[in-house]
Simulated assay, not measured.
Amino acid sequence: MQRRMKSFLCSLLSLLLSDVLATYHLSAGDPQLIAAQSYAQTRNNGRAPFRTLNPAKMDSQCRSRPLDLVFIIDSSRSVRPGEFEKVKIFLADMVDTLDVGSDATRVAVVNYASTVKIEFLLKSHFNKPNMKKAISLIEPLAAGTMTGLAIKTAVNEAFTELSGARLRSKKISKVAIIVTDGRPQDQVEEVSAAARASGIEIYAVGVDRADMRSLQLMASIPLDDHVFYVETYGVIEKLTSKFRETLCGLDPCAMGHDCEHICVNSNASHYCQCRKGYILNADKKTCSLKQVKAAAVVVVEDPCKCEARLAFQKQTLAAIQQLTAKIELLENLVGRA
């Protein structure tokens, strides 16, 4: 009986394993890909599944705080021409979701392989048709994967005021989205740390055999919110909805506010509140101590008659004192006689 039960359980586990491998297109002999898939599955546990979006049927645009957004895309030899076209479709879909404009979100694209090429700057296109046309004309560079050089170029040349980035005093979020399918051939840790220290938020997107450790070194923290993985370029459009949710869900209060006490998020904006005991002033930013009105004096009848008793005792004591004084006076008069 036990042998038959053990045989049944082994068969069931074998079927489940083969089903999982088939579902995620994994090879049991490829530990790197399995580890990457495991990481991707772990970060998405408990979250809504990705949606495949049709850019022609986008239900609404991103109305978040404006961004200076730079895409850094890998076009090395490992990215086949058809796959690179999928990357460009992903970029075009992302543009469709954003509120693009000179006073809204500005977009630039940095293309890299062994060399780095800035395809267009943040100041180049302020409308979607021109931007999407520029994306369609991007050609792959082939050869190696100099991801660190690409990040450094983006920081030094794309995220500058000369290239269209806005003044830091305007508190415009600066975001870089890196898309790669391989392992960097140069160092990314220090250059990524420098970029983050300069105020650039980095998202790292890995495709197929992308090196997960490198993605983690590049991305901002928390890593669960900044590292993404897809199995192939054919499904990279799944990330469009995820980035739309992320970029349109920016926290205006976290980006800086002028509330004296409490900042409250409200869609893409915010409003101010005061702590208990304070009221919001007319400027809707500062708070003043709430004035407490004096309580009215209310006479309450003493049900136990305690006050009356005390008054009687006082009167009695005063009468006894007066009587004692009179007796002493009489005694003194009698003594003199």
Rank of each mutant, 00 (worst) to 15 (best):
P66I: 02
R63H: 12
N54F: 02
P55N: 04
V70H: 03
Q41M: 10
I72V: 11
T42F: 12
S60V: 03
V70N: 01
D68A: 06
M58T: 13
A40P: 03
L53K: 00
R51E: 13
M58K: 10
A48V: 11
D59A: 15
P66D: 02
A40Q: 04
R43A: 04
D68C: 12
P55K: 00
T52I: 12
R43M: 08
D59R: 08
T52E: 09
M58D: 01
R51F: 13
A48N: 08
A48G: 09
P49V: 10
R47P: 01
D74S: 03
D74W: 00
N54T: 14
D59T: 11
I73L: 10
R63T: 07
F71L: 11
Q61H: 08
D59Y: 01
Q41C: 03
A56Q: 12
P66T: 02
R63D: 06
C62E: 00
F50V: 09
T42D: 13
F50W: 13
V70A: 07
Q41H: 08
F50C: 10
R65G: 03
R65Y: 05
F50K: 12
L67K: 01
Q61K: 12
T52P: 04
I72R: 02
R51N: 14
L53F: 00
V70Y: 01
D68P: 02
P55Y: 01
S60H: 08
R47K: 09
Q61C: 13
R47T: 07
V70M: 03
P55F: 00
R65C: 07
S64E: 05
C62Q: 14
Q61S: 12
P49K: 15
S60C: 06
P66R: 05
T52L: 14
S64Y: 05
R47L: 08
F71H: 01
Q61E: 12
D59S: 09
P66G: 02
N54I: 08
C62S: 13
A56D: 09
L69K: 06
A56P: 04
A40T: 04
K57F: 10
P55L: 03
A56S: 12
N54V: 14
P66W: 02
N45F: 14
N45I: 14
L53E: 03
Q61F: 08
R63K: 07
R51V: 15
Q61R: 10
K57Q: 14
N44T: 14
D68M: 06
C62I: 13
R65V: 05
M58S: 05
D59K: 07
D68E: 06
A40V: 03
T42A: 11
T42S: 09
P49D: 02
D59Q: 10
M58F: 14
A40C: 09
S60R: 11
S60E: 05
A56G: 09
S64D: 09
K57I: 06
T42Y: 05
R43H: 06
P55C: 10
I73H: 00
T42E: 13
C62T: 14
R51M: 15
T52S: 07
R63G: 07
N54A: 11
T42H: 14
L67I: 10
A40I: 02
M58Y: 12
R63C: 11
V70R: 00
C62W: 00
R43L: 04
N45Q: 15
L67G: 09
S64V: 05
